[in-house]
Write a protein that binds this DNA or RNA. Structure first.
Lengths: 348, 348
DNA sequence: GTGAAAGCGCTAACAA
DNA sequence: TTGTTAGCGCTTTCAC
C-alpha cells in the first residue's frame, strides 16, 4: 500500500494541504469551506468536511491570524485583583467572548503605569481585535499605543476622542438614589457615606451621587459623616471607627463599594453593634459573596454581566464593522438596589 | 526630504524588515537581537534596539508562533465557575504565567463533556504550549486530542499514562487531620462531616481522609453524621438541616469545602444557633472570602497559589525540555489548617 | 465554482 | 559574526 492517504500519519499533524489532498480539491476550496464561503458547491463541501473529520484536522490560528490580521482575541485590562469585582468581571467577559468565538487575554495593572504599558504591549503583539480597559479612571497615554495601531478600545467612565474608542458610562445615580430612598422609607434620617479614594473617578462620582440623592430625599448632610476610605475591607473598618468617634452617630452607612461595607459589617460585629437592628449598612457592586455575608448585604448592584456585555459588544461592533465606519459609541450600564438583610428600621 | 526613513510612516505598521532597514542590518540580525541570541555584536545590537525604539516596533506573535511552533500560551481548564475556588485559581495561574512571559487561555467546562471538547479544540487551534486540566476528576477521553498532538498536559488528582502528562497530587490528609486534632484539642468528641458528591474524586478522598483522621484521633464515627452534600451553599444548608433532624447532635461540623461551610454558617444563624459558641464549623479550600464571613471561617487551606504554581511549572518543564526528554512528573500540593473564628470549645 | 499562486512576518538552516 | 533564503499554514486575489 502506498504511504500517502492514511488518516493517521504519525510524523506530521494534518494541514490544509492534507485535507485538500484527501478531498481531491484545492486548498482554496478547503479554506472557503471552513470559512463558510457561499461559493463552494455542496458536493465539494461535503467531501471537504469528510476529509477534515477523517484527518481530525484543526486549522492553525496563528497562520489564520497572520494572513488575515484578525486574531479573534479580545483583551481585558483590569486593575486590582484584590477586589473580587474584577475577577467576576473577567469571568463574564470571558464567557461572552467564548460564546462569540473569541478568546480573551487578561491584563492586570495593579495601578502601576509600567505594568499597564507591558499589558498594552502584550495585547498589541498578540494582535487583539479589541481591548476593554476596565481600570475606572487610571487610564494613561499608553493607550495611544493601542489606538495608533487601529485597535478598537472601550473605556469605563472615560471618553477618548478617537474614532475607534467607545465608552461605557455607569449610572450610579439610579442605584444610589434607590438606596437612599429605601433607607429613608425605613425611617432613617441620619446617613453616613464611606467614600472611595478621591483620585478614582468612579469613587468621586459615587460620592457626588450620594450627596445629590440625600438632597433629593430632603435629608440633611453632615460633612463629618462623609469619610474617605480606600475601597478595601481594612478601609471600611477604619472608616467605621472614625465614624464611631464622632459625637452624633448615623443610623445607616452607605458605602462606596462592597469591600468597604464588609469591613463595616466586621467592625460593627466586633464593636458589639448589631446589624441591621442597631445599624443599617448598604454596599455597592454586589460582588458574588455579598449574599454570603452575615447578615446578607443590602447593596447597589453594578452588574458585571451587563458591564462585560457592553464592553464586548462595543469592541465587536468596532472590530467587525466594515472598513472606515466609525462605530464609536456610548453605552450606559445602570445600577439597582438589591435589598437583603443588612438594612432595617433604625432603633427607636 | 525623501519619504523613506521617517519614524512615523502612516500607512503600515513597522515590521522586522523596517527595523532591519533603519538599522542597516539583515532581518536575521534583528531576529537574533530580539531573541537574545549571543551571536550578535554589541555594536549591531545597539543599532537594532535603537531602530526598534524609534519605529516603536513590536514583533508579531502570530508569525513567531507559526514558524517556531511555540505560542507562549498556556491553557487552563476548570469546571464550575460558581465555586470561587476556580476564579481564584485562574488568577494565580495567570499571574505566574505572565511573570514567565506566557499568556493564558481559559476554558470552563461546566461539567459538560461537549464543552470540554470545544475547549480542547480551541486550545489545540491556538497551539498552546500546555494545558492544565483542573476539573478534579471529570477528565474525558477528549484529552487524547491534546496529548496526541504532543501538547503537555497536567492533571489534578489523576494520573495519565502518557509521556507528556504530569500529575498534581493533593494531600488533603494533612490538613484534615490537623482540623480534627484542633477540634479534639478544643474538647469536641462529636464531629460530623458534610461530604461532597460521591462522583467527584476529590470529594471522596476528602471524606475518606476525614474518616481516617477521626480514627487516628480516637474519636467515634457515627454513620448518620456523614452527610452527602454537593459542594454548594444550598447544599450546606440542606446538609445542616438534615443533621438537625437527628436525635443526637454533633458539636462540630467539618465540611468538604468552604461553600458548604458557608451554607452551614447561614443555616445555623437562621436556626438561632451561635457559631462558634454552640457549634464549631470548619471548611476546606480557604477561598478568599472565608475570612470575610461572620465569624471568619476556620478552614483547611488548599493554596490556589501553590496549585497554580505546580501546574504551571509542570507544564513549563515539559514545554521547555529538550526534545525527547520525558519530563513527566508528580507534584504534591499540601493543605494546612487556618484557625479563625468559627471554632471554639463545645458548650459545657 | 474552482484552482494557482502570492504573500502575511517571522525563525532557522545554511552560506559566507 | 552576519546575511540569504526557504518555508511555517493559511487567506485571498486573480485567472479560468
Amino acid at each position: 500500500m502506498p504511504s500517502d492517504t492514511s488518516q493517521k500519519s504519525f510524523d506530521k499533524l494534518p494541514d490544509i494541504r492534507a485535507v485538500a489532498g484527501l478531498a481531491k480539491v484545492s486548498i482554496a476550496t478547503v479554506s472557503r469551506t471552513i470559512n463558510g464561503s457561499s461559493l463552494v458547491s455542496e458536493r465539494l463541501k461535503k467531501r471537504v468536511w469528510q476529509a477534515i473529520d477523517q484527518l481530525n484536522y484543526l486549522p492553525n490560528t496563528s497562520a489564520r491570524t497572520l494572513v488575515s490580521g484578525r486574531s479573534h482575541l479580545m483583551g481585558i485590562v483590569v486593575e486590582n485583583i484584590t477586589n473580587p469585582f474584577f475577577p467576576e468581571l473577567i469571568q463574564s467577559f470571558e464567557k461572552i467572548a467564548v460564546a462569540h468565538g473569541y478568546e480573551i487575554l487578561i491584563g492586570s495593572t495593579n495601578s502601576d503605569p509600567a505594568v499597564l504599558a507591558k499589558c498594552a504591549r502584550r495585547m498589541v503583539e498578540r494582535k487583539v481585535d479589541g481591548v476593554a480597559v476596565m481600570t475606572f479612571g487610571e487610564e494613561e497615554p499608553v493607550l495611544d499605543q493601542i489606538m495608533h495601531r487601529g485597535i478598537p478600545i472601550v473605556l469605563a467612565e472615560f471618553k477618548l476622542d478617537d474614532p475607534n474608542a467607545s465608552t461605557i458610562l455607569l449610572d450610579y445615580s439610579t442605584g444610589i438614589r434607590a438606596a437612599v430612598r429605601h433607607l429613608a422609607g425605613l425611617g432613617h434620617r441620619n446617613l453616613a457615606f464611606l467614600a472611595g479614594p478621591r483620585s478614582l473617578h468612579s469613587a468621586l462620582t459615587r460620592e457626588n451621587d450620594f450627596r445629590a440623592a440625600l438632597a433629593a430625599a430632603g435629608l440633611p448632610l453632615r460633612p463629618e459623616w462623609i469619610v474617605v476610605c480606600d475601597h478595601t475591607l481594612k478601609g471600611g473598618i477604619a472608616g467605621f471607627e472614625q465614624l464611631r468617634r464622632l459625637e452624633s452617630q448615623p443610623t445607616a452607612i452607605v458605602c462606596s463599594n462592597d469591600m468597604t461595607a464588609i469591613g463595616v459589617l466586621r467592625a460593627a460585629f466586633l464593636a458589639g453593634l448589631r446589624v441591621p437592628q442597631e445599624l443599617s449598612v448598604v454596599g455597592l457592586d454586589d460582588v458574588d459573596f455579598a449574599e454570603f455575608t452575615l447578615p446578607p448585604l443590602t447593596t447597589i448592584r453594578l452588574s458585571r454581566v451587563e458591564l462585560a456585555r457592553a464592553a464586548f459588544e462595543a469592541l465587536r461592533a468596532q472590530a467587525e464593522k466594515p472598513e472606515g465606519v466609525h462605530a464609536q459609541r456610548e453605552f450606559l450600564v445602570s445600577t439597582s438596589l438589591v435589598v437583603r438583610g443588612s438594612t432595617a428600621p433604625p432603633p427607636a
